[in-house]
Amino acid sequence: MKDLFYVLYYPCDQIRDFAYDYLEGKLGLMTGLRFRQHLKGCPECQDYIRLYEMAADPKQFANENPIPPEFIDHTLKFLQEKGIVGEE
């Protein structure tokens, strides 16, 4: 009976291991159905997948400490002195 349960419903650990393939859109048809079925009834896994999606989203870093403009100026000046970049 337990085997049948695991065939029909994946346990939480396995659902979380599918997170990568889910984000890549690479879950097979049946696996995807079971995955979504599990999520519907499991708020913990819903939270987990939501956080996993956030972790994989580069938007988290869009507001990371901005780089002050003088840094690129320093680099350009350094490369100008080496004759690699022309004077503006």
């Binding site: 870093f61 840094f71 690129i72 680099t75 490369l79 970049v85 022309g86 503006e88």
Partner: peptide, 21 residues
């Protein structure tokens, strides 16, 4: 020559902040 220097400047302007980050 000057064309390469100009292109290198462009390369730095386009990529610098991403690589520094």
């Amino acid at each position: 020559g000057a064309e390469s220097q100009k292109a290198f400047g462009q390369l730095v302007r386009v990529t610098h902040d991403r690589f520094l980050a």
